[in-house]
Design a protein around this nucleic acid. Structure first.
Lengths: 153, 153
DNA sequence: AGATTCGTAACTTACGATGTTACGATATTC
DNA sequence: GAATATCGTAACATCGTAAGTTACGAATCT
């Protein structure tokens, strides 16, 4: 897999957490995502700042979902993990004297701007609650219990 | 500037070349782009394979535009430079057993897929000839001759 | 006090685009 | 045919970002 996996990972975690009452430790989440507890804390710090989760230290501590899944969109999560530019097509100088560069920059900005706008709009249209509903359908169709579904990734 | 600048740079070069008859050396192009002749050759090799330009070795050699600007779209150039995924939002495992991951992957693929489709469509709708026409307008409005316009970038 | 768990700094690794050096191949000029 | 100009390409270095790792301090519970 290439690029930034933070959004994907955090959605994964949030979906699980929104369906359980007990806190998850960074260790557990790291196993769930196939990564390291420090990476989990680092990434989830953004979710905490956004108010989506809380963390408690010490024995019995861990991460808890403390918000309303119907109000959190994928865009909210995307922003909370501190993602930068999603579209990697750079234009050159931002204030070019060269007319050629100005024409090129403008054409590229048109295309990438619209694509990025669409992406953010789509992310903003989907809530965690909607994903959870989709998950219900899968669990039911395959006779799964979310708690015991396999977790290779 | 962040990300991949190859498309931007190659459009810059192609626009210049399409308006002149003499070949450009890698050295000249490198100065134009603020980079290195080797980078120019490396990137323009893709344009040559696509049939948009040709290169000649030895004294008096260099790069020449050998195609029709009305038939080359920005998408053609984008593809010829060997660009990979433009949208950097990765999903996790491509064939996950975990239902949560399947739901997340699907939601992200929907959003990024549509954004990428829009981007490619837009790039495919603009030809080099159209950019050249826009450039004519700028040159005329500002009393420029393309040959002598400044080239800081 | 001891165990658990998060917070965070510091360092390393991985990867792709870019930059640089070096040298060989080819074409022109004299 | 020697000198020069120019591309072709390999090899290596640099840079930015996400990710992985180690280490240790802070907080909380038993």
């Amino acid at each position: 897999m290439r690029g930034d996996s933070r959004l994907s990972r955090m959605l994964h975690v949030l979906l699980h957490m929104a369906r359980h009452n007990t806190p998850f430790t960074s260790e557990q989440i790291a196993k769930m995502l196939g990564t390291n507890p420090v990476v989990v804390r680092r990434t989830m710090a953004g979710l905490r700042e956004a108010g989506f989760v809380s963390s408690e230290r010490g024995r019995g501590g861990g991460w808890s979902f403390v918000s309303d899944p119907t109000t959190i969109t994928l865009l909210d999560v995307h922003r909370s993990v501190g993602a930068t530019d999603v579209i990697a097509l750079g234009s050159g100088d931002s204030d070019p004297a060269c007319g050629v560069e100005r024409v090129v920059n403008h054409a590229l900005a048109e295309a990438t701007g619209e694509a990025e706008a669409i992406l953010l709009r789509r992310l903003g249209e989907v809530t965690l609650a909607e994903l959870s509903t989709q998950l219900d359908a899968i669990c039911k169709a395959e006779g799964w219990d979310d708690q015991h579904a396999p977790h290779q990734g």
